[in-house]
């Protein structure tokens, strides 16, 4: 077992660094507790920061002895992964960029290195160099780990917000008995269009709506895909027995649609939501009468 020998041998860099980390565990943890990374995450008590520091040092020692210093998946790191994730996530949430977080973690390296050099004054130059190299690699791996979790946190945030956007951005509003409207705001992609279609059709059944208004005033651009989705929604609503009215097509969008050569011929369109509502009301048999013109002003 040559590998076992190499890592277990007295005087090997791995063993040396592992021993050093065990020996100086308390001092390193104390020093780290004063660094920005720990200070910023454990704001409540310093003891907590020291405790977390000890756990990380233990993990580093275990990884150093196991000889997998460059491997973020090494067994020792698994124990502190959650802790590191918490730290990385906390830093990211405060709005730091990945490189700033990286610098924070890097600041943990000099104190340990200083301690190591002070600890081995009589060691041969070769061993000293290799040991400090190993320690640097170890700290680099730690940095990768923290960054990884920090980026994961960012991705999770994006996913969460996308989901929220899907839910929030497609309300179906009942405008009148038998008339529902969906004001569309922001860019439409296929996922959102699908949600819009489903919620609108559900609302048509629920409210027994004979008219559904799709208002696209808040949609910045319409491409052929979006137009196709609109057509599909209109067709599906028609199959269910409701008439769809598309309103709020801005001049620029109208021009785009014409340029793209899209045929919206079968779709009823109105300039504004108000026009669409008036159209639907008229079709439902309720005329809109202004008091002066209709002679209904007297009471």
């Amino acid at each position: 077992m040559p590998e076992q020998e190499a890592v277990g041998q007295q005087g090997s860099p791995a063993r040396e660094v592992g021993d050093f980390l065990h020996r100086r565990r308390e001092q390193i943890a104390q020093r780290w507790a004063d660094e920005t990374l720990f200070r910023a995450v454990f704001t409540v008590s310093r003891d907590e920061a020291v405790e977390a520091g000890r756990a990380v040092v233990d993990a580093l020692a275990q990884v150093a002895v196991s000889g997998r210093a460059a491997d973020p998946e090494a067994g020792g790191f698994l124990v502190v992964r959650e802790q590191l994730a918490r730290m990385g996530a906390a830093r990211t949430r405060t709005g730091l960029t990945p490189s700033q977080v990286s610098n924070d973690v890097d600041a943990l390296r000099p104190p340990v290195l200083d301690l190591l050099l002070a600890d081995l004054p009589d060691a041969p130059a070769d061993l000293l160099r290799e040991s400090s190299n190993l320690l640097t690699v170890l700290m680099g791996t730690l940095r990768v780990l923290v960054l990884e979790t920090a980026l994961d946190e960012g991705q999770a945030l994006i996913d969460r917000q996308r989901l929220q956007l899907l839910e929030v951005a497609t309300p179906v509003i009942k405008l009148w008995d038998g008339i529902v409207a969906v004001p569309l705001i922001g860019m439409l992609d296929s996922a959102r269009s699908q949600v819009v279609m489903e919620t609108l059709l559900e609302a048509v059944v629920e409210q027994q709506a004979r008219y559904a208004i799709l208002d696209i005033t808040g949609v910045p651009t319409v491409d052929s895909l979006v137009a196709q989705h609109l057509m599909k929604t209109v067709a599906a609503a028609r199959l269910m027995g409701a008439e769809c009215v598309v309103s709020g097509i801005r001049p620029a969008i109208a021009q785009t649609i014409v340029h793209l050569g899209l045929d919206l011929g079968t779709v009823v369109t109105r300039a504004t939501l108000a026009d669409a509502l008036a159209h639907a009301l008229r079709k439902l048999g309720s005329d809109i009468v202004t008091p002066s013109a209709g002679g209904m002003g007297e009471r």
Partner: peptide, 26 residues
């Protein structure tokens, strides 16, 4: 044709069956 369910309507549209000659009601 009356009372088509939303899921069925979506399937029909995806299949390209918009039934243009058929009148519909809720």
């Amino acid at each position: 044709m009356a009372g088509m369910r939303p899921a069925v309507a979506i399937t029909m549209v995806e299949l390209g069956l918009t039934l243009p000659g058929l009148r519909t009601a809720l």
